[in-house]
Design a protein around this nucleic acid. Structure first.
Lengths: 197, 197
DNA sequence: TTCATTTCTTATCCTACATCAATGCGTTAT
DNA sequence: ATAACGCATTGATGTAGGATAAGAAATGAA
């Protein structure tokens, strides 16, 4: 039920099995079918989710009705709208299952509780937070400075597994370009590789 | 010397004067002349800085040699490269004074120390962190979805004071457009306002 | 199997913004 | 004063990527 989550916490956050068992009563799980939502724009996000299996995406919809993918969350990733949780504000984002996905639901005080039980969890959580910031920073930097092609190359290098699993129009949305443009970029890249051999 | 910083911590983070005095021996200050650097790309960032007075910017330089402004830091702002500090990695960024600026220098363990002295500091630090994430998230979202004009309008609404104080080419760099484009956007906006009266 | 739906590609045209170049105008330095 | 520099504006031209449309390929459903 929480198998991956358990293994994950023990390996990464340094919990013991007993400590995990103390926490597990506060956990719930849920299976989300492809296309179903864990959060919608305007709702206040109440939880963090850990992906046991499957694949989620979070995205916003802008004034002109266009989707922009903020994040993908494959197996063993956490996903949430931290700001919405923390400040109790309506979220700007949707969270939707790309494949049938089973998640572990962590309520607001899980982190506090786990940190009390074992401070090394608190430290690990800090690492996740700092990583999150780093990743956002990099993304801003890329959006400011890199061409569609460079962003795509970066993406496939960073998330090679996702590149295969996710429809291209979603990758385009993550990169901030249209599916047609991505198709052109790919064609262009293919011809370059061909020539260079 | 630390006047603003002291007031700031007492007001915002809930420290007492005595608590602040316990911390102050670990602090240093520095005056940075216009155009001088607190950090350069490739260095490992060792500190956080609090702007007592003046104005800083952080920016990166991309492969093609172009600058991209990541953040402005006016009076009473903290600035740092959290990732570089936390992970002990070389920074991607420069930190430079736009005006003559005096900063308070916080070394790596200041936060821990202050949180031990008064836990409410720890909480306040958490708020800053969460705000930082929220702001980065918004920026990604805008870069993905909004036109130059919308981004500019957003900027002047969010940082009206900076709009006056900072040269336009820096605002352009923050927005991810050229100074020429920003000039055109402004012209366009001016004519719209004129017509609408 | 066949029909329908979603995804990907390709082609054409279009637009927001970049690039390049010239001009003017404050500010600082001599 | 005047030279020199940084900054903003304007105009002319270029280009990456958007919009639209249509067809091919893949997926899925009956």
């Amino acid at each position: 039920m929480f198998e991956n989550f358990k293994i994950y916490l023990i390996e990464k956050a340094g919990l013991t099995e007993e400590e995990f068992n103390q926490l597990s009563p506060t956990l719930q799980t849920k299976v989300v079918s492809k296309g179903d939502f864990l959060l919608k724009q305007g709702e206040i996000c109440q939880h963090s989710f850990f992906v046991e299996k499957g694949l989620l995406r979070s995205y916003s919809i802008d004034l002109t009705g266009k989707e922009h993918i903020i994040q993908f969350a494959p197996q063993n990733w956490f996903i949430s709208d931290r700001s919405s949780v923390y400040f109790n504000e309506p979220s700007d984002f949707f969270m939707e299952a790309i494949e049938e996905t089973s998640v572990v639901i962590l309520n607001k005080n899980f982190i506090t509780l786990a940190s009390e039980i074992n401070p090394s969890f608190g430290q690990y959580n800090e690492v996740l937070l700092q990583n999150h910031i780093r990743q956002l920073q990099k993304r801003v930097n890329q959006l400011l400075g890199a061409s569609a092609e460079m962003r795509y190359l970066n993406f496939i290098q960073l998330y090679p597994d996702l590149t295969l699993r996710v429809p291209q129009w979603m990758i385009a949305s993550y990169l901030g370009i249209t599916p047609e443009s991505l198709s052109r970029v790919r064609k262009e890249l293919a011809s370059k590789n061909f020539k260079s051999k």
